[in-house]
Structures are given as C-alpha cells and as structure tokens.
Design a protein around this nucleic acid. Structure first.
Lengths: 232, 232
DNA sequence: CGGGGCGTTGAAAAGCGTCAACCCTTGTGG
DNA sequence: CCACAAGGGTTGACGCTTTTCAACGCCCCG
C-alpha cells in the first residue's frame, strides 16, 4: 500500500553516446531483428519510462537494471504487475495507449524502438509478428498464474513462488538478486513490507534461504522452497 | 477454496441439429466472419469444454449460458480467471495447448471453430487477425485489473467491482444476472463463499442492491456501488 | 416425499495488517 | 573526513478482516 514519490518526468532521459553491448535475450529469436532500429535510453532509480494512459510510441528492451509495471487505485494503493529484467521487452503489446506505468526499480539501461518501425518490420517479417504475439500470450499466461497466487496463496507460498520464479529468470537459479525493495515485492504479491520481511526472516530461520544482503538471496534448499510454494 | 466434482468428460457434447440464431456480439466486427465455419456445441452444467493442457484444436463463441475458466493448485484450491457470457470468445488465444480449464457454469450453447480454419481466415483477412490480437490485449488488460483487485482490494470493494463489471456486460447495467454460484464468485474474487454471501447481505442492508433471487441482483444505487468499488 | 446442493448466519480463530520503535546503510553537506 | 539525515529493513505488540467450522433453511430435482 505504498505511494510512490511523484516522479513527474514523463519522457525517458536519452543518451546519445553509448554503444554498450546489445544484450541478446535467451529466446529472442526473431525479435533480435528489432535491435537494428534501437536507440539507447537510461533511467535513474524511480524514474518513469512511461505512464499509464500515455500514447504508446516506443517499445523497449531492458539491457541492464530492472523496471516495474504498476497500476494504482485512486487512494494510492498500488499493484506491481510484473518486474522487467535484462532481456525483457516492455511496451510491445500493441496498445494505442499504455495500460500501466513503467518505472525503474534501479538505474537501468534500455533500448528504445519506435513502434511505427516495429510495425513495419512486423508486417514484413511474419516471424517478428509471431514473436510479438507469443510475448503477449506469455504475459497473459503469467498474469493468470499471478491471479491464482494473489487469490489463493498465503504469504509464505507467495514469497516462495516469487523466489522460485526469480531464480528461473536468473543465470544461477540458486543465487537470486532482488534489485527491488521489500515494498515493491509486497506490492507485487499483495502483501505489506512487514509481512515480506517477516517471511524472509522465517525462511532464513528454516535454512531454506540465506540473505547475503537485502538484495542477494541464496536458496539453500530448493526442494523445500518448491514444497512451500504450493505449485499448481 | 472449493473443489469441483470430477467432470471427466473431456470433449464437448455436440449436437447435429440446431440452427439457433447466431448471436452477434456487441463489437464483433471482423470476427463475425468466423461464424461461417462454426458448428453448434452444447454443454450441461459443470461439463468441461476443454481442460488445461489439452491440445487446442477449437475456438468457441458463447451463444447462451455461461462458462468459467479455472486454474488449480495441487491441493485443489481454485481460481476462476474469468467468466464467459453470451458473445464472448473462448480459446482463441492462439496457444498450442490450453492454459486453463473451461467449464459450463450453467447449461450453455456455443459455436465451435476449428483453429486450423481460423488461422486460414486470419492470414487471408488482416482484420480478423487484428481482432484476435485485440481480444488477447483486452484479456491481458482485464487480467491486470483483476490482479489489482486481488492484491489490494477488500471484500466489499471486490464484490462492488464485480457487480459493476457484470453490469457493464449486461443489457441493463442495473439489472444483473449471476448465473454462477457464490462459490464461483468467491473463487473469482479470492474470497470464500461465506464472505461473498455476507457482503451481499450487507449491500442489501445498505440499500445499494436488492436480491430478487440468488441469481438476480438489482442495483438500486449505482453511485454508492461505484464509491464502494474504490475504482482506479 | 426425500435428499442433496446451495445459500445464509453465527461464533471462534487465525493470518495478516497496522502502528510503532529501532537499526543499518547510504549519501550529502559541513 | 565526519556528522547527520533520510530511506529501507526488521522486529514487536496489537487489532481487524477474513477464514474456518458449524448449524440450519431453502429450493430444486429425482
């Protein structure tokens, strides 16, 4: 139930220089074609990439750092739909206006694609439009899984599921980095900061995880974590 | 947290006769083209249209009655992703295998489209593939809204939001039919049957709604209901 | 006429949220 | 270089919302 400080800068800060290595996502496939038309973008921590309701003119790929996508209630209650990590695409849903706000969880580097150019490539390259469609389907499936979590899992099951999911997205599934705050995790899992913190402490006491720092988790007992996650 | 009785019949009951009027959805647009290749299907109450994991060979449109799409946890806890009402399309996400189980909430009539034929039409008619894409986007956006509800709204806000959403989908937004049980509503909103029932009783006592029967709600004070829904 | 599912209501319990205090880290400015 | 402030994280005590468990009534269908 946290409220973000007013990050009013609507546009993304651009940087003209930069020729940092373009990161190839695990299963990019056809979407690697988009990188030809990409321009670099950087964000400071908590800076918005775009806001809910903004006209969608660009799509993005995360190179480094992490983002969050948020939806808000009128009184400030927040839900974080998902986190975007290096290799993830943001804003390629083909909407006229963005359906959520995207903000940097930590300082982040991205590549920006003009959607007009994306459409042109997609209509010329069926593989690209297929990949975009697959992306959309994956997001829908993940959203359905998250609804099950939010509607039916308890605090421990939510955290366990989250850690396993983050593990699967990282190079070493037993060494998980959490660039976001406890409050961000809480807003993603439908909990409070305090509950997230307490469950971490509890899992640590049960020797299921180790906390090397607040942002670095070592999963010492994957089996137990999977047990606790109450999988489908 | 209810468990459905084992509806083991995997396929849909077909009926060869039937030339009931094909229902045109409010904003069907291009998808009306699909009706040429449709064949009628009927389901009894609680009968499955397809199961999670089944190969996706058909898409469907609801003509009459209502369906639910479910995801389950290993111990039987259930979440209902969404309800499908007359005019809604089911199973047109373009997945290889269905990501959820679809069951009839009440006796239902549908039209069945072979997906191979759908693909053929879609590739020949850009309007059709655009409409299918739009459908997918709408589902994703609705899922994000539902995650906000499940993660951050209390019981009264959930029920109020649900009644408003059902109202918008019906002809007369102040006269809402609820073909599903209290348990179905609970599994959709992340609550229990008892809580759903209690909130209905409470809204009735506050003269926000009337219960003409268990399946028929009259919204007597839309403003109050919107107030209670804690909209975005 | 009887039975079973569904809905409602009540009482008690539990899980999580709220409020508050405190610690630690980080970064900023003197 | 150090002091201090600010934000994030942890922990504790308490309370409230929702769940759990139970009983009962009703309606529909066999």
């Amino acid at each position: 139930m946290s409220v973000m400080p007013g990050v009013s800068e609507a546009g993304a800060a651009r940087q003209r220089s930069a020729s940092f290595a373009i990161l190839a996502s695990k299963s990019d496939g056809a979407l690697a074609l988009l990188d030809r038309i990409g321009r670099p973008v950087t964000l400071r921590r908590d800076q918005a990439l775009f806001h809910e309701g903004d006209a969608a003119r660009y799509g993005f790929k995360v190179i480094a750092g992490a983002l969050r996508s948020c939806r808000l209630l009128a009184d400030g209650r927040r839900h974080i739909t998902e986190f975007f990590l290096p290799g993830d695409y943001v804003g390629l849903n083909g909407e006229e206006t963005h359906g959520f706000t995207a903000e940097a969880v930590s300082a982040a580097s991205l590549v920006q694609y003009p959607l007009s150019a994306v459409e042109k490539i997609a209509s010329a390259q069926p593989q690209v439009s297929k990949s975009l469609l697959a992306l959309l389907r994956q997001h829908l499936s993940a959203a359905q899984q998250q609804m099950l979590l939010l509607g039916r899992k308890n605090a421990v099951e939510r955290i366990a599921s989250f850690l396993l999911a983050m593990g699967e997205r990282s190079d070493d599934s037993e060494h998980v980095l959490l660039p976001m705050t406890r409050g961000d995790i809480a807003d993603h899992l439908g909990l409070t900061t305090e509950t997230v913190s307490r469950v971490f402490t509890q899992l640590k006491a049960q020797h299921v995880i180790q906390l090397k720092s607040t942002t670095e988790v070592r999963v010492t007992d994957v089996g137990a974590l999977e047990e606790l996650a109450a999988a489908a």
